[in-house]
């Protein structure tokens, strides 16, 4: 698992993709930070983080698209699947590699709390809540992206479908409010991984929400492993 994580993480940064991702992420997020906090004078990071949610819709597929697709296309999955490791370890290794990329990206933003604290009086729960929520949400979306990547050999198709999936998840809550039917609206709201985000930023660490995020991740990681297993029986 660790070997796979190290290799995948390395491959992000030996190809331009890792740098493109970091550059776009940091450029856009720092633009928001500058707008809201530096020039706008807000002490809360919530505005920046919630603006970044839409960026994630674009960036998550960029990171997850190649995780399994590339292995299948280059036939390197033969090496992984005939090595003495469990399929779930392969999936977890890949998942952790993608998460590490986001951890690196988020680590680069840790300068924000520093700046805000120096010049203002931010609430601690606001900062911690935003980071925890962002981390959980990314964990959830990466598992969806990884799952989609395991379905196709083509990186492009994986990227497009992941993008569509992220966009759908993003829009569920706004669609839900537009729907008249109570049941449909409730289901859409429940499915909307983004709508749960806001309670964290208000400082409410609801166990239900944490469990929700973690379980969605676990379900998709499990499904990814099943998809890989199933290929052997095809």
């Amino acid at each position: 698992m660790i070997a796979i994580m190290k290799r995948d993480l390395r491959s992000f940064f030996t190809s331009p993709i890792g740098y493109v991702f970091l550059a776009v992420f940091l450029l856009v997020s720092n633009y928001f930070f500058f707008g809201y906090n530096v020039s706008g004078g807000a002490s809360s990071l919530s505005y920046v983080f919630s603006s970044m949610l839409l960026i994630l819709v674009f960036l998550i597929p960029l990171v997850t698209m190649r995780l399994m697709s590339e292995e299948m296309k280059q036939r390197t999955d033969q090496m992984l699947l005939t090595a003495p490791v469990r399929v779930i370890d392969i999936v977890l290794g890949k998942y952790l590699a993608a998460m590490m990329v986001f951890v690196i990206a988020l680590a680069c933003t840790l300068i924000w709390p520093l700046i805000v604290t120096m010049f203002g009086d931010p609430a601690v729960f606001d900062i911690v809540g935003n980071y925890v929520a962002m981390f959980l949400l990314i964990g959830c979306l990466v598992s969806v992206g990884l799952f989609i990547s395991s379905l196709t050999e083509s990186q492009i198709i994986a990227a497009i479908f992941s993008f569509v999936a992220m966009l759908a998840l993003f829009m569920f809550s706004s669609i839900a409010s537009a729907v008249d039917n109570v049941v449909v609206s409730a289901v859409l709201n429940w499915l909307s991984v983004f709508s749960r985000y806001s309670s964290f930023t208000a400082g409410v660490f609801s166990l239900a929400d944490i469990v929700y995020y973690l379980s969605v991740s676990v379900v998709f990681l499990f499904l990814t492993a099943r998809v890989i297993e199933k290929k052997r029986w095809a």
Partner: peptide
């Protein structure tokens, strides 16, 4: 195992 097409990571 060496498959027909060796499973090489070309960027390494």
């Amino acid at each position: 195992y060496m498959p027909e097409q060796p499973p090489l990571y070309l960027d390494m």
